[in-house]
């Protein structure tokens, strides 16, 4: 058992998995000598060499496509998109190719490609270093989208992701990289996909949050307990496909639900989760389902005032929960 942060969880697990499975290689912009712009691959080129830790040309489309080809061949590629904001040139390769090989060949060809990428805001990254891209990709059947938010979950889900035989988009909230620390056992545990985790048990309101918002929500819970509001915090962890059962059973217990995400409101994860609750747990609700999200603007502005306005935070979450509690 040791306490590590999210970035260490990634680096340690990548190294451990590369030692286990020689088919695993890493490719991305600056992942080699530089060790990644966030240092997630620090030291890996020294241990595994340039054949397995590959500095790629600055070209996301072919970075993903090369990963697809290698996965079709039978390797276990991990490609790093330096910022989620830059993944768009690879959209066609991810959506039309990686996510469709299995279906379009009736299972003959499979594409076990792992795409890692830092996402999310709150670090002064402006429009193009802050984006949350999960909803766009969570719309795509055949593509897993996961967003583990603690060292424990990152280690367990990264190990699992490297055993899944379908493409995975592995989202890492960049603000949590060094902010979030936690205990990680020494065992080779794994955390399966499509299993949400109740990060805090409570009885009054269900709050569904992931990534940085999970941690803001857990802080909010600490404040609200003094006001006699006891919230249950559900971390979906896998954003697509969702663990519907865990979300629904929590909402059926509490009768109230709030979904928090940084991604903008319209057709975000909150919309899907709201519809799920409305159609499957309608009779259990004591209040309308609420969403607290980033606003519907193109992306997060750079100026601190506007950035803070964009981001949900502890204060906004407690305000929303009080409103829901009073309903």
């Amino acid at each position: 058992m040791s306490e590590i942060n999210n970035i260490d969880a990634l680096t340690l697990t990548l190294a451990q998995e590369m030692r286990r499975d020689p088919r695993i290689f890493l490719a991305g912009e600056d992942v080699g000598r530089r060790g990644g712009v966030f240092r997630a691959t620090k030291g890996l080129v020294q241990e595994f060499g340039e054949n397995r830790v590959v500095d790629s040309p600055l070209a996301e489309l072919s970075l993903v496509a090369v990963g697809i080809g290698a996965a079709l061949y039978g390797l276990r590629p991990i490609v790093e998109i330096q910022f989620a904001d830059f993944i768009a040139p690879a959209f066609n390769q991810i959506v039309q190719e990686a996510a469709r090989f299995r279906y379009r060949t009736n299972g003959d060809w499979i594409c076990p490609l792992l795409i890692r990428t830092p996402y999310g805001g709150g670090i002064g990254g402006g429009l193009y270093h802050s984006q949350s891209i999960e909803a766009t990709y969570a719309h795509i059947p055949g593509l897993y989208v996961v967003a583990p938010a603690t060292p424990y979950d990152i280690v367990g889900m990264l190990r699992y992701a490297l055993r899944v035989n379908d493409p995975v988009l592995f989202l890492e909230h960049k603000k949590t990289y060094r902010l979030i620390k936690g205990e990680v056992p020494d065992s080779d545990y794994m955390i399966p996909f499509c299993k949400a985790d109740i990060k805090r048990k409570g009885s009054d309101i269900t709050v569904i949050a992931y990534g940085l918002m999970l941690h803001e929500t857990l802080q909010a819970a600490q404040q609200l307990i003094h006001e006699d509001i006891d919230i249950e915090v559900v971390d979906p962890r896998t954003l697509h496909p969702l663990d519907r059962d865990t979300i629904l059973s929590s909402v059926k217990k509490t009768g109230k639900a709030l979904i928090v995400h940084e991604d903008n409101l319209t057709l975000g994860l909150g919309a899907e989760i709201s519809a799920l609750i409305a159609s499957e747990a309608f009779e259990y609700l004591d209040a309308p389902v609420m969403r607290l999200t980033g606003p519907d603007v193109p992306a997060m502005p750079y100026a601190r005032t506007m950035q803070d306005y964009f981001m949900p935070n502890v204060e906004k979450i407690t305000t929303a929960i009080r409103k829901l509690a009073a309903y």
């Binding site: 990963g67 697809i68 390797l75 390769q93 039309q96 190719e97 469709r100 379009r104 060949t105 003959d108």
Partner: peptide, 30 residues
């Protein structure tokens, strides 16, 4: 498409197979 013949599945958006071919070439080199 035919996996047993190493014939990789064709899709309709053109040229997507070209960088994938480089990926298979990369795997062969690997």
């Amino acid at each position: 498409s035919a996996r047993q013949l190493n014939i990789v599945s064709v899709s309709s958006p053109v040229a997507t197979q070209i960088p994938q071919a480089s990926g298979i070439g990369f795997a062969i080199q690997y």
